[in-house]
Nucleic acid binder design. Structure first.
Lengths: 220, 220
DNA sequence: GCACTAAATTATGGATCCAAACCCGAGCGA
DNA sequence: TCGCTCGGGTTTGGATCCATAATTTAGTGC
């Protein structure tokens, strides 16, 4: 057999993953309507698994669906994004605390590798992907799936605005991100949950404040 | 036409609502498998809207689905429920703060009415429903849908264990709940967000601690 | 020329049928 | 006796077809 995979993921999962990528990468921007038939044809399936995929992405906070009117990538206003960031400030430290004790040596090596690459200077798209992997990796051993999922949802639904922010501000203040990441890593290595939580909250809070100084991101 | 309703909610929504009720009320307990065909026949529809309903309830945290293996109400162990309570301790104060300024006179009247009925003494099922309405009403004006949904998810996925706890402990320590609710109401009436947050966190924390003293709830 | 209406087009929602995966038990062999 | 394999039945996953709701467009009357 050509497929080595042990478990074929259901077609709906596969389609959801593809659409998720396209939304997170900005290929499908906020406001754009998702046409079931168009997606089905493009991905070579019937409309049914697309419908299920849309439900999945709705649950992920990436789409909003209205009965008989279809699905679209939601526009968020500045107040909504602010609240999403405040949710992150409260939930992510909990995920970090739950995950921290189980972080392995391999995790720390990967985290360091990611941070080195960020510091080497990368374009916006690469930074967004690395930054996402960095933080979600620090939460990855959190044993409670609901918490991991909630955090992922928050990252998903704010990704477009993080990109818009980065594209506006460029790499000017990147040294702050790097300093915060380094401090966080150092606290994690010491297994100092208090410091780790403090640095993480500061990191998210600062981002929120800088973001709210650019209301032009939210005009559409 | 006999139906006055302006907007028929989709069948999948209707079915999801029915199943949600049955899960929250305990008619469908943790561990029980959901058979699509059985539900479809019972509710007089085809399997398709049931499938969509299952996706919705999965997103609500009420079901867990596995590819090709169907959906079931998840068992949670004591550690998972502890983390869900810690999430509540962090998220619900935020929802309360966001909602508080928009609470109306009618809301306060309803809150008082609910509390009076709780104090009058009710059975477990009625208490659970009133308590849920009480708290969710205090969050109802939170303008961010994601936050309201997250809080609702947390209430949903812990409801079974709240019931089990109440059935074990009975009304013995109900006076504490009543005192906490009254203090919370009073702080809300004063528009004192600091006090309201403090009382709310204490309320949830105490419940979590009492719950964790009854590990027998989680044996199955 | 503009506004309102009605029909046609388009997209989503639902039902039925078929295919594939999983589960359980019987039978065989070590 | 235990374990493995093979097969039938059950259940979920996917495709196609039809119904219904929304949108757009063409037409008509003022």
């Amino acid at each position: 057999m050509s497929e080595v995979s042990g478990q074929e993921p259901a077609a709906s999962e596969r389609i959801a993953a593809i659409l998720r990528d396209e939304i997170l990468s900005g290929k499908i921007p906020p406001g754009q309507r998702i046409l079931q038939e168009e997606v089905a044809e493009r991905l070579g399936s019937s409309r049914l698994p697309v419908r299920e995929a849309i439900r999945i992405l709705d649950a992920d906070g990436l789409l909003e669906v209205e009965a008989n009117k279809g699905a679209r990538v939601p526009y968020l206003d500045i107040n909504q994004v602010e609240v999403l960031y405040r949710m992150r400030e409260r939930l992510e430290p909990l995920a970090l605390i739950e995950s921290m004790p189980a972080l392995t040596e391999a995790d720390f090596e990967r985290l360091d590798e990611i941070q080195v690459r960020i510091e080497a200077g990368v374009d916006v798209q690469a930074f967004l992907e690395l930054d996402r992997e960095f933080h979600l990796l620090t939460y990855s051993h959190c044993p409670t799936e609901q918490l991991r999922d909630s955090v992922t949802r928050l990252w998903n639904s704010t990704s477009h605005y993080r990109r818009a922010f980065m594209e506006i501000t460029g790499a000017r203040r990147m040294w702050i991100v790097n300093a915060e990441h380094r401090l966080l890593l150092e606290a994690l290595a010491r297994h100092d949950s208090q410091d780790a939580e403090r640095y993480l909250v500061g990191h998210i809070q600062r981002t929120r404040k800088e973001l709210s100084q650019h209301p032009e991101i939210f005009t559409h």
